Simulated assay, not measured.
Amino acid sequence: MDRDLWSGLAVFAAIVEAGSFARAATRLGRSASALSHAMRVLETRLGVRLIDRTTRSLSPTRAGEALLLRLKPAIAAVEDALGDLDGARETPAGHIRISAHRVAAVYAILPRLADFARAYPDITVELVVDDGFVDIVADRFDCGVRHAMTLQADMIAVRISDAVPLVYVAAPAYLDDNPPPAGPHDLDAHRCLCYRHTSSGAVHRWEFERDGRRSERAIRGDFVTNDVDLMRDAAAAGLGICCLPLPHAVRHLADGRLVEVLAGWAAVLPPNYLYHPSRRQPTAAFRAFVDAMRA
C-alpha cells in the first residue's frame, strides 16, 4: 500500500477515536493543522468526505464509519505485529504513557523511575497527573494508577503501594486562635479546606474511622480547590483544617508547618494499583515498566 495513503488512514482513525483534531494531535505528537492537512489530502485522494466538522465537534460520515469499521481490525493487527517484534529486542525500547493521581505519581511512581531509567535507557516515560477520572483506553494511555475503588472495569490490576493513611492537619497559627476539634462533630465551628473532584465536580466527603467503625461527613468548605498541593499550602498558611493523604503532609508535619488534629479519627485509603486493558498485548517495554512498579 502507498505509504502516504496508509499514513492518512491512520490519522483518520486517530482523529475519530480522539474526538477532535487537537486531542489527536497531542496523542500523535503533531500539530492540529498538520492533521487537518492530512485529512484534506486523504479525502481528496479518495474522492469522498470522511469526517463532518463543525466549530465544536466532529463525527465520521456514513462512508467514514464504514471505512473505520474495516480499518480497526487492520490497525489492531499491525499493533500486535509491532508488539511481537518489540519482544524480539535484546533491550526493551519504546514509549510508556501513564495517567496517575498526584499522590501516586509523587510517592509511588517517581521514586522508582531513576532505577528504571538506568536499567532501560531506551524506554521513555510520559507521566500525566490527573486527579479526576480518566478513560485510559479512550485517551490512549498504556496504563493508569488509582486507588482500588476507582479502577475502570475489565482491567488487569497490579498493586504498587500499601494502603494510604489520611491525616487531618492545620497550621499552628490557626490553632492558636481556634481550639483543636475533639471529634468530627466539632468541625462545624472551624474553617475547613475541601477538595473538589475534577471529573464529577463533587466536593470530597471527609472520612473517619474509629474503633473499627467507618463514617463520612459532608463538610462545608470555606476554601475549595481541585489541587491537593494548593489545599495543603492553604492549610500551612493558616486558612483552616484540611484532610490530606499522609505522604503529602509528612514533610510539613516534620518541620512544624502543619500539626495533626483529630488524631485517631482519620481513615485509610486503599492501596494504589497500576491497571491496564486485559485485551491489549503488552510490549516488552510495558512489561518491564510494570515489573519495576510492582517491586
Rank of each mutant, 00 (worst) to 15 (best):
A14R: 13
I15Y: 02
V16H: 01
E17M: 00
G19A: 06
G19S: 09
F21E: 00
A22G: 01
T26W: 01
R27S: 08
R27C: 05
L28N: 02
G29P: 00
G29T: 08
G29L: 04
S31T: 15
S33R: 08
A34V: 11
L35P: 03
A38Y: 05
A38F: 01
G47V: 08
D52W: 10
T54A: 13
T54C: 09
T55K: 09
R56F: 02
L58V: 12
T61N: 06
T61C: 12
T61R: 07
E65Y: 02
A66H: 03
L67K: 06
L69I: 12
L69N: 05
L69G: 01
R70Y: 11
R70C: 13
K72T: 15
P73T: 05
A77I: 06
V78C: 08
V78G: 01
E79W: 01
A81M: 12
L82Y: 05
G83K: 00
G87R: 11
G87M: 12
E90K: 06
E90R: 12
T91N: 10
P92H: 04
P92N: 15
H95E: 14
I98G: 05
S99Y: 15
S99C: 15
H101M: 02
A104P: 03
A105P: 11
R112V: 04
L113S: 10
A114I: 11
F116R: 03
A117V: 03
A117L: 05
P121H: 08
T124M: 05
V128R: 11
